[in-house]
């Protein structure tokens, strides 16, 4: 999966992530949890601004972040 952020793989990842979402968890921590998973699975590095509920709870925003790394990954 590294360096190959195929849309279907990312969809699968987001679907799996959604199944594990904990509604009782502090949204900031949920964002950190999502960031750990995305960085580990996709071999990307997020900025502190991106490790936020606004970005990481929104699948469209996540896709945008990942797309921005393809071809110019940090």
């Amino acid at each position: 999966m590294n360096g190959d952020h195929a849309p279907d793989r990312l969809d699968e990842l987001l679907r799996q992530l959604d199944e594990l979402r904990d509604p009782d968890l502090d949204p900031e921590l949920e964002a950190v949890r999502t960031a750990v998973l995305l960085e580990d699975s996709l071999d990307i590095t997020l900025t502190d601004d991106e490790i936020s509920p606004d970005v990481l709870s929104d699948p469209a925003a996540v896709r945008q972040v990942v797309a921005s790394r393809d071809g110019g990954r940090t």
């Binding site: 900031e28 921590l29 964002a31 950190v32 949890r33 750990v36 960085e39 590095t45 502190d48």
Partner: peptide, 15 residues
């Protein structure tokens, strides 16, 4: 380790 100075990353330990 990707950014040891990050105030957000340190919170991962709370998980």
């Amino acid at each position: 380790a990707r950014d040891p100075g990050s105030a957000k990353r340190v919170r991962a330990a709370e998980l």
